Simulated assay, not measured.
Amino acid sequence: MDSPETLEALQARHRKEQRDLIARVTQKKKSANKKTRKGVNDECDRLEQELQERQAQELAAQNGESTDIGEQEKQEEERDEETQPADIENGVESLSISGSQPDNSAQPPTQQNAKKKQNRAKARLARRAAEHEALVAEAKAEAAALPDLREQERIRMREQFAKYGLKEKEIRADGHCLYAAVADQMETAGLGLKPRIQPKINGEETKVLPYKAVRYAAADFIEHNPDDFAGFMEEPLEDYLQKIRDTGEWGGHMELMALAKTYGIKINVLHGDGQVDKIEASDAKPGDEENEIWLGYYRHSHGLGEHYNSLRKTP
């Protein structure tokens, strides 16, 4: 059985989570454009709020308090109410029993208690906000001291472009980037979108956006050759194919394998460290280099995570 997490370990984990979230939020906001900025900002606010609430609950549990925010408030109010009898007695003693006129400026005990409760609640909220702000400030300071992985990756990729005689065509980071990059390569290289299995959309050969045609080409090839791919899937084949065809699910190595085979091409995937993944059809022949395309693979440069750009040969 795992030993309980110490307070120091919990605080260290919370700081790391704050750093990671700050880095993630920063990348998302940098990648946003005018159309997506509001949605990105709303999502970032939601992520920050969720993290703040979860960490507050974990800290409360560590201190032996209730992890339910409403229950915490109730417990604190009950503790406040325990002081009410003394407050009432003091209020009674302040009243005149000699028949003289009472001091109208004095507030009734119930109003005094309500005011004290409000002040205590405000103090609790202020204390929690100050603790959270201190944690965020510390995380930001630590994040600022970390290397800029995005810029480092960009610099290394530019070095690789010069080495291989390539230039970059930026592809929108929207979940379709792999398919859109392949479509751009197929068009600019003059290869044409001609899969060995002609993709059909809704049962018909219909003209669609290039990236959509590439999605269907990958899905159709996998569907017709399930034994080659089923071992790599963590879900039923039909569910996986539906994601490729009809959603913004990211593509990866398996989809690149399917595309290389269905288009009869060689796909070179360039990484920032100089590594080149070569993915090609099993029946490729010497001299087929003219039927090759290049993609750039990024891990840090885009807010949504892994990303592919189209790399074109320079004249």
Rank of each mutant, 00 (worst) to 15 (best):
Ala217Ile: 03
Ala217Glu: 01
Ala218Arg: 00
Ala218Thr: 02
Ala218Cys: 12
Ala218Gly: 02
Ala219Phe: 04
Asp220Gly: 11
Phe221Trp: 14
Ile222Gly: 01
Ile222Ser: 02
Ile222Tyr: 06
Ile222Lys: 06
Glu223Ser: 12
Glu223Pro: 01
His224Cys: 06
His224Val: 08
Asn225Cys: 09
Asn225Ala: 05
Asp227Asn: 10
Asp228Tyr: 12
Asp228Ser: 15
Asp228Gly: 03
Phe229Thr: 05
Ala230Leu: 13
Ala230Lys: 14
Gly231Thr: 02
Gly231Ile: 02
Gly231Tyr: 12
Gly231Gln: 10
Gly231Pro: 00
Gly231Lys: 03
Phe232Ala: 14
Met233Val: 03
Glu234Phe: 06
Glu235Asp: 13
Glu235Gly: 08
Pro236Gly: 08
Pro236Leu: 10
Pro236Trp: 10
Leu237Glu: 11
Leu237Val: 11
Asp239Glu: 15
Leu241Cys: 13
Leu241Thr: 06
Gln242Ile: 10
Gln242Leu: 13
Gln242His: 15
Ile244Ser: 04
Ile244Val: 13
Arg245Lys: 13
Arg245Ala: 09
Arg245Tyr: 13
Asp246Ser: 12
Asp246Ala: 11
Asp246Leu: 07
Asp246Trp: 12
Asp246Val: 07
Gly248Ala: 14
Gly248Trp: 15
Gly248Leu: 15
Gly248Asn: 15
Glu249Val: 07
Glu249Thr: 11
Gly251Val: 02
Gly251Arg: 00
Gly251Pro: 04
Gly251Cys: 11
Gly252Arg: 11
His253Glu: 15
His253Pro: 08
Met254Tyr: 12
Met254Phe: 06
Met254Arg: 03
Glu255Gly: 03
Glu255Thr: 10
Glu255Val: 08
Leu256Thr: 07
Leu256Met: 11
Leu256Asn: 04
Ala258Phe: 09
Ala258Asp: 05
Ala258Pro: 03
Ala258Ile: 07
Leu259Asn: 00
Leu259Glu: 00
Ala260Pro: 03
Ala260Leu: 03
Ala260Cys: 09
Lys261His: 12
Lys261Thr: 06
Thr262Val: 12
Thr262Asn: 06
Tyr263Ile: 06
Tyr263Trp: 14
Tyr263Asn: 00
Gly264Trp: 02
Gly264His: 02
Ile265Trp: 03
Ile265Tyr: 01
Ile267Pro: 01
